[in-house]
């Protein structure tokens, strides 16, 4: 007994495929049912926060990391940070050493003797408040979100502590709070901004290496910083549209 095959004509095939493709295009036009939600930069009015870090000015004092821990009740353990400082050392024989003992809070030691150093500098790190943040897109319950002002925030009363976002952040900027069991991260000290104060880390930086402001305002501190310096973001190849801009960022930093 022969197996019966349904025969499709070429005409049917083309008709069905173009109907399917048309359906997909139509579905993608229906705006409220977009699969991926990303907050858009408000044009004209409305704030859109950005951050600048001037590596040329950072002295590695760790005041920023200390102030952040105090201001935001971050646990003392040396592996919970909303911000931390890394010391990069590139030796004459082309080794790249990165150290961040306790996030730089207790200061740094340079293990390499000065004559062997090709280049060395500090890189302070914190949340990049990405415009296309992978962390908010993976949240299964909508507890991680990007506010209309472009800040990646966590609704801690809604977070279920699953840790997807911790894994999704390519910059390692999130941790699970060991007491509350929910995710915690940099908020750009939103509670301070709303009270007219500067974020704790920016306030504490003695050399003014940390800058923040409204990217929509062309005269804000961060816009002027971007205008006057040649800035780069971390991991641009990941298309996260990071809004943390570094001046004098070496290629070795990742």
């Amino acid at each position: 007994m022969a197996i019966e095959k349904e025969n499709f004509s070429r005409r049917d095939f083309i008709k069905n495929s173009s109907m399917f493709a048309g359906g997909v295009v139509f579905a993608s036009l229906i705006n409220p049912y977009k699969f991926v939600f990303a907050t858009k930069q408000p044009k004209g009015k409305g704030k859109w926060y950005g951050i600048g870090i001037d590596i040329e000015k950072c002295i590695g004092c760790g005041s920023c990391a200390r102030a952040c821990k105090i201001e935001n009740n971050v646990p003392d353990d040396p592996f919970f940070f909303r911000n931390w400082v890394e010391q990069y050392t590139i030796t004459n024989d082309e080794r790249i050493l990165v150290s961040s003992p306790n996030g730089g809070i207790d200061g740094f030691k340079q293990p390499v003797p000065e004559e062997d150093i090709y280049k060395t500098f500090f890189v302070p790190k914190m949340c990049n408040h990405c415009a296309k943040s992978p962390c908010t897109q993976v949240c299964p319950v909508g507890a991680s979100f990007e506010s209309p002002e472009g800040l990646a925030l966590v609704d801690q009363s809604y977070c279920i502590g699953c840790g997807y976002c911790v894994q999704a952040c390519p910059y390692g900027c999130r941790y699970i709070d060991p007491v509350k069991g929910v995710v915690d991260k940099c908020t750009l000290c939103y509670h301070r901004l709303e009270k007219g104060l500067d974020p704790a880390c920016m306030m504490a930086c003695p050399t003014g290496a940390r800058i923040y402001g409204d990217l929509n305002d062309k005269n804000s501190a961060v816009s002027l910083f971007l205008k006057e310096h040649n800035c780069a973001v971390l991991k641009p190849q990941l298309n996260t549209e990071s809004k943390l801009f570094y001046n004098d960022l070496s290629q070795e930093v990742h």
């Binding site: 939600f37 102030a67 105090i70 201001e71 909508g142 507890a143 991680s144 979100f145 506010s147 925030l153 609704d155 009363s157 809604y158 908020t187 000290c189 939103y190 509670h191 301070r192 709303e194 009270k195 104060l197 704790a200 306030m203 504490a204």
Partner: peptide, 17 residues
């Protein structure tokens, strides 16, 4: 797709410095 009130709750935290 998130709780809009969360923004206000985060903003109401006490500032220490």
């Amino acid at each position: 797709p998130y709780r809009g009130n969360a923004i206000g709750e985060i903003a109401s935290q006490q500032a220490k410095y």
